[in-house]
Design a binder for these strands. Structure first.
Lengths: 153, 153
DNA sequence: CGTGAAAGTCGCTATCC
DNA sequence: GGATAGCGACTTTCACG
């Protein structure tokens, strides 16, 4: 489905979308037309979902990252729907996963400081019942990338 | 530093970089020249870090997300440097944070399936000593966004 | 896949208000 | 901040080998 050249193109586009098709074509050893055809194909089939700007967390004044591990007693659908809606609507929540193991859900939240985090936190527990909810502050972001590994494509 | 129009521009660019400056200018109620000047300014100052392509996880054959919670007995600098290098070099590791609380580090890993995950896992524990290392499989990705909230800017 | 070429759009800059 | 104008670069598509 995808060959080595496709992977190279994806590697490049996952790092920088500002490069022109001609530049990318040179990097992967193609001329611009077939290179453009490949990019177009991968966009049309949905492999390339979107092109977005990545913004600096500190400069956007959301330098603090906090993880919330959530335990829920029994999941009924009404509660779950409400939970899903909250997650979707709260812009400070960047990621949310339903997990196996002890914690049922894991959220990654970004805020300017602890005061604002407390507001987000209070807001959440006032609207929904939780069995247990524990926060961990990220002292350091050691790695953050949006570039998926291409070796399994 | 940033006004409401800047925030609107960032909101748009965080969702879609394919829009032309003219389109963005129309959306935020400016003509294209001042709009372009604002974007340029935010790029030059580093608020807009980069423009990247977001790739579909499933189609890239890394549909499985796993979190690794790591505990370390005592952090010496040699171990930490080696740990940092591993995190940086393993492409399946998308995020890594140093946390407060019980777990010292939290990693988000993407792989095609459990077999490959086991390879990544074995690879990691063969190269470095850990006090404790527990994996949680993400059954469902409920939310994932790269768009930071702009209300604190 | 390659070359070449065409057309249209866009980024970017400058100038003047 | 707005308007206009311009150049060059880029995207996108074509025909043809």
């Amino acid at each position: 489905m995808f060959d080595q050249i496709d992977r190279k193109i994806i590697d490049i586009l996952q790092q920088d979308t500002n490069k022109s098709v001609v530049d990318i074509a040179n990097e992967v050893g193609l001329s611009h037309t077939p290179c453009w055809r490949r990019i177009k194909r991968m966009e049309d089939m949905g492999l390339i979902r979107s092109r977005v700007a990545l913004v600096d967390r500190r400069m956007a004044n959301v330098g603090m990252t906090i993880f919330i591990a959530i335990k829920v007693p029994r999941h009924n659908s009404v509660w779950l729907d409400a939970f899903r809606k909250e997650i979707r609507d709260i812009p400070e929540i960047m990621e949310a996963y339903r997990l196996t193991g002890e914690t049922d859900y894991l959220l990654r939240v970004v805020v300017p400081d602890i005061e604002v985090y407390d507001q987000v936190y209070q807001n959440l527990i006032n609207r929904l019942e939780f069995s247990d909810l524990s926060s961990s502050i990220a002292m350091e972001e050691m790695k953050f990338t949006t570039a998926l590994p291409t070796k399994y494509m």
